[in-house]
Design a protein around this nucleic acid. Structure first.
Length: 311
DNA sequence: TATGAGCGT
């Protein structure tokens, strides 16, 4: 399959040639791969006559016919020609586009793939998502393109950090490992190195319930995922819900932010807590940072104090 | 490897 820089046309040249067109790669010369599906093609995919792709015309966009997929975790060399070549055999590809940094023109690591119908897009999403990409060390990361629609996240995420992941652990594997015990587990992401396409050995797991997040932090630490025991920690502050924003500044020196100079103070103040957070929650969350002396949420308060043995 | 990042002209 395509090597970086291989093929008759350099991807950058294609960008320049089609950059102003609404649909790039719409009528390219049929590449060799259009003749016969490669070995990695799912059995369900049957390649139609190569000429058919050229006839595809994009239908008018309508709200109930989303035909575009978002693709992420792309390595830098995975440009339009690459994406085109690995998906053209579906026979229903309309356009591909890799998003680039305006200044550097380097790929931002994601792009959009438009199909002739929603059904075609769905087939590709179902059959390819999570499967290995040809010539890449990573798996396809696909989703419906949903730009414009707010990423409707009115429900908060409760995220944990998971380290020590074996090199074969996928998003799916990680999520299933947790979902088996925590039904509110709603996603997992293994972090991929953009240069190599390989896992960085850590990831994040999201929960809908804070109580399950907290339980998972203790109950899943050391549990096997694939071949290695996971090491679990709190996720640093992004989009964290409720009291988990503690790492973004909701905690402070217990004497207040105006007076953080007491070298003997070992107590931090935790604010903005949910009403149902208990002393035990705080203990679970903070015990990994050091030995705790005392944890207290005063009755009826939405804040608490966590005292460590040392600073 | 040890705290990412995912929506465009």
């Amino acid at each position: 399959m395509m090597q970086p820089g291989a093929g008759g046309v350099a991807p950058s040249a294609i960008s320049q040639q089609y950059g102003q067109q609404p649909y790039m790669m719409m009528a390219p010369p049929p590449p060799p791969t259009a003749q016969a599906p490669p070995m990695w093609a799912p059995q369900s995919q049957v390649a139609p006559p190569p000429g058919q792709l050229v006839q595809q015309q994009p239908q008018p966009a309508s709200a109930d016919e989303v035909r575009t997929l978002w693709i992420g975790d792309l390595q830098y060399w995975m440009e339009e020609t690459y994406l085109y070549n690995i998906l053209v055999h579906t026979g229903e590809l309309v356009s591909v586009k890799v998003i680039r940094n305006k200044q550097t023109t380097q790929s931002e690591g994601y792009g959009f793939i438009e199909f002739s119908s929603r059904a075609a897009a769905e087939r590709v999403l179902q059959s390819y998502n999570g499967t290995p990409m040809p010539n890449g060390a990573q798996n396809f990361r696909l989703n419906w393109a949903s730009a414009g629609e707010k990423r409707s996240d009115d429900t908060p995420d409760y995220t944990i950090f998971v380290g020590d992941l074996a090199s074969d652990v996928t998003d799916y594997m990680l999520q299933e490992t947790f979902r088996a015990r925590f039904p509110s587990c709603k996603g997992a992401k293994v972090v991929i190195d953009r240069l190599t396409g390989r896992t960085k050995g850590y990831g994040f797991v999201k929960f809908g319930d804070e109580s399950e997040q907290l339980r998972a932090m203790t109950e899943m630490n050391g549990v096997l995922c694939s071949t290695r025991p996971m090491r679990i920690g709190p996720a640093a502050n992004k989009n964290a819900g409720g009291s988990q924003q503690y790492s973004k500044g909701s905690y402070q020196n217990s004497q207040g932010s105006k007076n953080e100079s007491d070298p003997n103070n070992t107590t931090i103040f935790v604010g903005n807590l949910d009403g149902n957070v208990t002393d035990d929650h705080l203990r679970q969350v903070f015990s990994q940072y050091g030995d705790l002396v005392h944890v207290k949420i005063p009755a009826g308060k939405r804040c608490g104090f966590v005292q460590f043995q040392d600073r």
